[in-house]
Design a binder for these strands. Structure first.
Lengths: 200, 200
DNA sequence: GTTGCCTATGCAACTCGTTGCATAGGAGGA
DNA sequence: TCCTCCTATGCAACGAGTTGCATAGGCAAC
């Protein structure tokens, strides 16, 4: 459980209200740590009770008041402690991969549906990559003059960029494969029983 | 929620007991869909009650009896229906990325700890890639003679291979960056306040 | 010959995450 | 004018996932 820590990092980079955090989790830090506004509000209240963050009521004109949070001393200490703990292995959930393997046990029409779905994914990953590259241009125009915080943000961003590039290449590979199978498949042996279920 | 469907795919590829499924989820299909034995046993019971899978008690000598499950008609129908639904966007949890960004708000000693941690990750990803490549050699020796099921398994495996290659390259990038910062950092401005928290 | 690991299944308690809903004022368009 | 969307926060209920523990026989090593 590290939502607290993701929130702390975000608040250290920039204080903000629960609502603003929720928007950041949609746009920025949420690319590698997702959370809904419900989780964020609940965790913020707990963190405030524990003294990890300090809250300040801010009146606004023309819109509801907000509570602006910022990281407090105990929060920074907790973050430092967490940072020194080993990283637990991530739990992976790749639904598309399951569906691709599932398509072997369905009729050829399923392949057509799957191809459309993979194309949709390809589009969204392509748009995300474009957004990453645009953000890189905007936020890191001079790569020779970054401070430590920016260097660390940038190396994470590079990870996102390379991840999306890999994704696009793989989705193209998937599309090529699925189209080939959709063409060449008369009534193939897709339902072949009893193969090894212990494959890598 | 698609654990049921991942289990169905695994059972269609090869029937097995809850225990065997849990082992597969550690080794094979679990690379893109994780589950503990608790989840698997619970879900299997529910699936059996719903008629999605059929169970057969198998007595063994020298070890406890087991219940071997296989996918039943309603399960296949449910899988076909699920396959035609759009894939919901995956929730990402990249703890290491959060820690890298968190390191900006800690003292230089944190960088040293983080470097060791990244090296550890690099080792495990390297081992996983080797295992994927070995599994590819073992299970797909003749890439020109694959049936539909094998083609689909192989394209997913290629995704795993490319994912791990990208991971290794990025972790090397991270290590280079962290080492550079750990060297050159006197008392830098890592705590610079008020930067944009809405970066990509 | 006892210690520890492997197979095989399961209960109970807990935390985390999701979903639906509610409030409430202001902005902007049909 | 009404409808919808946006900001801003929150409650309540549910479902998913995690953790710790329990049983129980067999096998292998020390």
């Amino acid at each position: 459980m590290a939502l607290e820590h993701a929130i702390l990092v975000s608040l250290l980079e920039q204080p903000g209200s629960g609502y603003e955090l929720a928007r950041r989790f949609d746009r920025s830090i949420g690319r590698f740590w997702t959370a809904t506004h419900q989780q964020i509000y609940r965790v913020l209240r707990r963190m405030e009770a524990d003294g990890w963050v300090a809250a300040e009521e801010v009146a606004q004109d023309g819109r509801p008041d907000k509570k602006v949070y910022s990281a407090a001393g105990p929060g920074r200490a907790a973050l430092a402690e967490w940072l020194r703990e080993p990283v637990e292995p991530e739990t992976v959930r790749h639904e598309l991969a399951v569906k691709i393997r599932a398509a072997a046990f369905d009729d050829p029409a399923a392949l057509t549906v799957l191809i459309a779905e993979v194309e949709r994914h390809r589009e969204s990953h392509s748009a995300l990559l474009a957004r990453y590259l645009h953000g890189e241009q905007r936020d890191f125009p001079d790569l020779g003059a970054l401070d430590v915080q920016q260097e660390l943000q940038h190396v994470v961003l590079r990870g996102g960029i390379e991840f999306e590039r890999m994704n696009l290449a793989w989705l193209d590979d998937v599309l090529t494969t699925l189209r080939r199978l959709a063409d060449g498949r008369g009534r193939g042996t897709g339902d072949r029983e009893q193969t090894s279920g212990d494959r890598v």
